[in-house]
Amino acid sequence: MPTITVDLSADDPALRKAFTKNLSLWLRTQGVDINHVITRFTQLRDHDVFSGPFPLTTGFAFVRLTVDRARTAAFRRELAERVVRELGPRIAPERVFVQFDPVDPGLHFTGASLAEGAPHE
């Protein structure tokens, strides 16, 4: 954990690969096992997103980060800044929207952790 979901209007495999690599490496410097960093991209098409009645047609990203609720506000801010930096210059900073979902990691499972008999409620 953390889990990162990026809804992206840019169909750019190089951007996705660089974003994933660089963000994972930064998280490693923060003590996160990079094997636990899961990033998922979804492609948004023109006219999938509107600002009021007006479609946002190109160059935007919605990023949702699921992180341990014990992480500090400073960590979350720095992570959000990294997200914006890694999406640029392809996506302008004012078109990157970042949201955090703080969670209890003990409430997240994989099929493997359940098969191993990891404790859970």
Rank of each mutant, 00 (worst) to 15 (best):
Arg28Asn: 07
Asp7Tyr: 10
Thr5Trp: 11
Leu56Gln: 12
Leu65Lys: 10
Leu87Met: 10
Phe100Asn: 05
Glu78Leu: 15
Arg69His: 13
Ala74Phe: 13
Ala14Phe: 01
Arg71Ser: 13
Ala70Tyr: 00
His120Met: 11
Val49Arg: 13
Ala18His: 04
Asp104Phe: 02
Gln43Thr: 11
Ala18Thr: 14
Leu56Ile: 12
Arg64Val: 15
Ser24Trp: 01
Ala10Pro: 05
Pro105Trp: 01
Gly106Cys: 00
Glu121Asn: 13
Pro53Asn: 12
Phe100Thr: 06
Phe54Asp: 15
Leu107Glu: 08
Asp12Gln: 00
Ile38Tyr: 08
Ile91Asp: 03
Val6Asn: 00
Leu44Tyr: 02
Leu25Pro: 08
His108Glu: 05
Arg16Lys: 03
Leu65Phe: 05
Val67Trp: 14
Asp7Ser: 10
Asn22Trp: 01
Gly117Gln: 14
Leu65Cys: 13
Ala80Arg: 04
Thr110Arg: 02
Gln99His: 14
Thr72Trp: 02
Ser9Gln: 08
Asp104Val: 03
Ile34Leu: 07
Ser51Trp: 15
Val84Cys: 11
Thr66Lys: 14
Ala73Lys: 14
Arg90His: 07
Asp48Gln: 14
Asp104Ala: 13
Val83Gln: 08
Pro93Gln: 11
Lys21Ile: 09
Leu114Arg: 01
His47Lys: 15
Val83Gly: 09
Val6Leu: 01
Phe50Lys: 07
Lys17Ile: 06
Ala73His: 12
Asp101Glu: 15
Leu107Phe: 11
Gly52Asn: 09
Asp48Glu: 10
Met1Trp: 01
Asp101Ala: 12
Glu78Lys: 13
Leu44Asp: 03
Ala92Lys: 12
Val84Leu: 06
Arg64Gly: 06
His36Tyr: 14
Lys17Val: 09
His108Phe: 12
Leu79Gln: 12
Asn22Glu: 04
Ala74Gly: 08
Leu87Asp: 00
Arg40Asp: 00
Leu87Pro: 03
Ala118Leu: 06
Phe50Thr: 08
Leu8Trp: 05
Thr110Asn: 07
Ala74Trp: 10
Lys21Arg: 15
Glu86Phe: 03
Val63Ile: 03
Ala115Pro: 06
Ala112Asp: 12
Pro105Asp: 04
Leu23Met: 14
Glu78Phe: 05
Lys21Ala: 10
